[in-house]
Simulated scan of single mutants.
Amino acid sequence: MLKLKHVLQGVGRPQSALAESLKLSEAAIAQLLNHGQWPRSLDNEELQGRIRVFLTESGANDADIANAFEEVDLPCANTTDPALKKEPSGEDEPMLLPKQTLLPSTRKAFSLFRDPFDELSCAQDMWVSPDIRYVREVMYQTARHGGFIAVEGESGAGKSTLRRDLVNRIAENNDPVLIIEPYVLASEDNDTKGKSLKSTHIAESMMAAVSPLTKPKNSPEARFAQLHKALKESHAAGYRHCLVIEEAHSLPIPTLKHLKRILELEVGFTKLVSIIMIGQPELSVKLSERNADVREVVQRCERVTLPPVEGARLEEFLKFRFERAGKPLAEVIDAGGIQAIAARLSQADHRGGRDETISLLYPLAIGNLMIAAMNLATHLGVPTVTADVVKGV
Rank of each mutant, 00 (worst) to 15 (best):
K327Y: 03
G381K: 10
I262F: 15
L24H: 00
F224K: 14
K260M: 13
V177S: 03
D81A: 07
F69M: 05
H228L: 07
H249I: 02
S111Q: 14
A237K: 13
C76S: 09
V304I: 15
F54V: 04
A28T: 06
Q31A: 14
E310W: 02
R324G: 01
M95A: 10
L361C: 02
F269T: 10
N168K: 12
H145S: 14
K232V: 15
I149G: 10
R240Q: 07
D131C: 10
P308L: 06
I371A: 04
G36K: 09
A248S: 14
G268L: 01
R313L: 14
L283M: 13
V389Q: 01
V267I: 13
Q226I: 03
T80H: 09
L102G: 10
K86Y: 04
M206D: 02
L166T: 10
A83E: 13
L256A: 09
K327M: 07
H228G: 06
L227W: 07
A312T: 03
A157E: 03
M207Y: 05
V285F: 13
W127K: 01
R136F: 11
K391V: 03
R169T: 14
L120D: 09
A171K: 11
F113P: 00
K5L: 12
I341K: 01
L364Q: 15
G156D: 14
L376D: 01
V177M: 06
E310V: 04
M139C: 13
S211R: 12
R290E: 15
D334Q: 03
